Amino acid sequence: MADELELTILMPCLNEAETLATCIRKAQGFLDRTGIAGEIVIADNGSTDGSRQIAEGLGARVVPVDQRGYGAALAGGIEAARGRFVIMGDADDSYDFAKLDAFVAQLRDGADLVMGNRFAGGIAPGAMPWHHRYIGNPVLSSVGRLFFRTPIGDFHCGLRGFSRAAVLGLNLRTTGMEFASEMVVKATLAHLDLREVPTTLAKDGRSRPPHLRSFRDGWRHLRFLLLFSPRWLFLYPGIALLGLGLLVGAVLLPGPFRIGDVSFDVHTFLVAALCIIVGLQSISFAIIGRRFASRYGFIPRSGHYDRLLEALTLERILLIAIALMLVGLAALVWGVNQWALRDFGPLNASRTMRPVILAMTALVTGFQLMMSGFMSSMINIPIYERRVAEAPPPQPNP
């Protein structure tokens, strides 16, 4: 951009008239003190309390964002920013915009995303509810580190700086509070340079309740983390269930199994069959979910995973499915034959139910694999968007 600056200080705003002026003055003081060529942008999300007029009166640039939501406001502000770097923070005076030196230093040193860490910098009394401080934030941050192997310790800190070009390249899509998690997750998956600096959190200066809703927004963050990690949502539970079902089924297939006074028989064998069916379906969902997410840009592509998917062609999946269904049919025929040999009378349930359960399990899993193979192949169909030439305007009749 011809008028590009070094830094944009971005604040999302929805009815923050009580604290907005304080935040803007602190940000202006930081720019004046450091001599950084920068601007202050207020991404206004439909304020009706005079916030927009306050910002304009203090010389900040207001960017109206019609679509409601924390993420939507930030996305609109980032798009409109003229700074090479952007530092974003809430306009409720809980973050100190006068002390952004550590963020700028890390950005100038080459960092793509610099996160504040409130637990390392200090949280003032009353600044964070106890269930956020000791349950919500630690648990969600731990889940994020486990799922995505990110170095970030405070996933949900609202004060963070980043390279505008790098974040625009992440194609962030969420519009709510989960925007904060999406930025960290996608930056990690894209192998950007992520760093943390200590920051403080003060009690906000608003008299009204915050926009954040603890359980609703906490669930949205957790849901996002799960949906962005098909391995933890589908693959690992599926492998565990499938492995357990195969192990228990192999032990019980010949007959009952005893441990001390406890006897495991056909009912446990049925539970093992259920674990196999659900486990295999979960693994299929992991493959389909990963293929869909990587194809449409939600998750960066992976060389190892792409090679695995290339090996799992529809034809190979169908061969495995057909083999399983043939095994199931053979076991079912054997069971019917045993019934016929007894003139279709009563059977020994412990002995004859095993091949029937085996037959049903093989038939169901074979059918599941077949349908999953077709679904995965549908996602992988190449798409070519043909540009339709515009029709010439109608000519007036002579």
Rank of each mutant, 00 (worst) to 15 (best):
G144R: 04
G205W: 15
S142V: 00
L172F: 04
D154T: 15
D90P: 14
G328Q: 01
T365W: 02
L233Q: 11
L201R: 10
R160M: 07
N380W: 08
G50Y: 02
V266G: 03
E315V: 04
T175K: 12
R82K: 12
A75E: 07
G328P: 00
N348S: 06
G297N: 14
H132S: 12
F298E: 07
I9K: 13
V333Y: 03
A202I: 09
L146W: 06
W334Q: 06
D3H: 04
D32K: 15
E182M: 12
L192T: 12
L326D: 06
R208A: 14
D204K: 15
M177G: 00
D44Y: 03
S207D: 15
G136Y: 01
T268S: 11
G110E: 06
E18V: 01
F119D: 02
G345W: 03
A187C: 07
G144Q: 10
A60G: 13
R145G: 03
F215M: 06
S51F: 10
I277F: 05
H156G: 15
T34S: 08
L308A: 14
S372V: 06
L312F: 13
A105Y: 01
L146F: 12
R173H: 09
R223S: 09
R295P: 00
M325C: 03
Q338L: 10
D154R: 14
F97Q: 03
V364W: 02
D217N: 07
P394G: 01
G29S: 10
F228H: 14
A27G: 10
S377F: 02
D92Y: 10
T361A: 09
P209Y: 02
E178Q: 12
I383G: 09
R84M: 09
L233Y: 00
P396W: 05
L244N: 06
A80R: 13
R195Y: 00
L107N: 09
F292H: 07
F228G: 04
M325D: 08
E182A: 10
S181G: 15
F30G: 00
F215C: 02
F374T: 13
I24P: 14
L140H: 00
H211C: 04
D343V: 11
G169D: 11
V336W: 04
G249N: 01
G121E: 09
W219H: 15
T174A: 11
P230S: 03
R290W: 06
T352Q: 10
Q106M: 02
T361P: 02
A180V: 15
G297E: 15
P210V: 10
L7N: 02
R206D: 14
L242W: 08
I379A: 05
H132L: 08
V266K: 13
R213T: 14
D92L: 03
I42C: 05
F285M: 11
R301I: 06
E182Q: 12
S350C: 03
D101T: 12
I239Q: 08
L20K: 08
I152Q: 01
F228A: 09
R351A: 13
L235N: 10
H156A: 15
G57C: 09
I87P: 07
G50C: 12
R351S: 12
V65H: 11
L7H: 05
W339T: 09
E390H: 00
T313L: 01
L274Q: 14
A120Y: 02
E196P: 12
G245R: 08
E390N: 13
L194P: 11
L332D: 15
F374Q: 13
Q67H: 01
I276R: 09
V327Y: 10
F292G: 00
L159E: 00
T8D: 01
D32A: 14
W334H: 12
F215T: 08
F234T: 03
